[in-house]
């Protein structure tokens, strides 16, 4: 299988979701997750000879490693050029380990059989596709609430809205997510 055949839209959506989670909310305004995913695929293309796996799952895992390095480099570069601590600026929003762990619950690599892992990975990819199809503020409220585990007051602070407003947005986002999942499933 070629790299281009494996670089499906779904894989890109999944990596973009991971990149958004790892970059964090406020820095997203300054750094584009799509650019980082694009750089990840370019790097994968350059080093494709180093990929020793055979399965789609191994390939996605390999891409995730490249993505993690790209995110780290990008954040380091941003910190250097800004001369300040973005993580401190993020307050409760940016939590690299926690955010990636949330989506990784779908993968649960160490505790499930290969077939269970495949099912979980498929769910994560479908969810990433469905989230990608949502309006930005819908995607944002679901990501902050469920993948970054923020309370509604923290979500409200992160989005610059009232608690009442983000709760209504959350309800609308959940309804739209179901519609969106129905389309991609």
């Amino acid at each position: 299988m070629t790299l281009s055949a494996r670089s499906s839209t779904s894989t890109r959506n999944y990596l973009r979701l991971l990149a958004r989670l790892e970059i964090g909310h406020r820095v997203q305004a300054k750094l584009d997750a799509s650019d980082i995913v694009q750089e990840t695929f370019l790097e994968a293309h350059r080093h494709f000879g180093q990929f020793n796996g055979k399965s789609e799952g191994e390939f996605v895992q390999w891409l995730r490693m490249i993505l993690a390095a790209r995110v780290a480099n990008t954040l380091r570069h941003y910190l250097g050029t800004q001369g300040r601590d973005v993580r401190r600026e993020e307050g409760p929003v940016l939590n690299l380990d926690h955010s990636s762990m949330q989506i990784d619950q779908f993968l649960a690599a160490s505790i499930s059989s290969p077939s269970q892992q495949a099912v979980r990975r498929e769910r994560a990819v479908l969810l990433a596709d469905a989230l990608e199809a949502l309006p930005k503020d819908y995607r944002e409220v679901l990501t902050l609430r469920h993948f970054q585990g923020l309370s509604f007051p923290d979500v409200a602070q992160a989005m610059g809205r009232s608690v009442d407003s983000v709760q209504k947005l959350w309800l609308r986002a959940l309804i739209r997510l179901k519609d969106s999942l129905g389309v991609v499933e």
Binding site: A130, F147, L174, I175, L177, K178, L181
Partner: peptide
């Protein structure tokens, strides 16, 4: 209908 969609969305995340 709306509640069922909302809860189904909730179960997905």
């Amino acid at each position: 209908d709306a509640l069922d969609k909302c809860l189904a969305g909730l179960e997905a995340v």
